[in-house]
Amino acid sequence: MNRLRLRYGLFVMVALLQLAAPLYMAWHWEDVLQSGRVYYWQTAPVDPFDAFKGRYVDLWFRDAAGPVGGGSPLKPGQTAYAAIREGADRFAYISEVGANKPDRDYVRVRVNYVEGNVAHVTLPFKRYYLPEDLAPAAENAYRTSAGREATVAVRIKDGYGVIEELYIGDKTIYQLLRGK
């Protein structure tokens, strides 16, 4: 009986750890959403047929590259820090990519390749999930929307970024769909 009690006690501990995982994740990302600084990113005008993959929009960023900063050289595949700045057009861009954390706002990125002094990176926010019944309508709206320019609002804090909203033209994707 004692052994069973021990096993049960350990099971309860493991169960608490299991519960802590989604709760911690939610708390962490909710914190970034609530208190992170908002940046607007222009997504590159990708082929609309490839933009929607079933239930999410695959986001490609026009400015997912920046000059390599000081410190150790960057290798493809490694994690690096991209310093974020706001341009005159209000859109965010990467001012520097380096192996060390910068003083200003930054996100953790993965280095894809380095060309000359420019590091091309993958930003940590790449997908925008949609309800499965809305995805085809959203794809259609995106394809027919003027300019086909899309913008995402991203909250950034302590190196983490969370997408807050996806805009097509000046409307959010949900406003656009409701308008239809």
Partner: peptide, 17 residues
């Protein structure tokens, strides 16, 4: 269900794949 719970949080916060 453990996998589903972690995945659902990822979906809610548009986390990268």
């Amino acid at each position: 269900m453990l996998g589903a719970a972690i995945a659902l949080v990822g979906q809610t916060y548009q986390l990268v794949d």
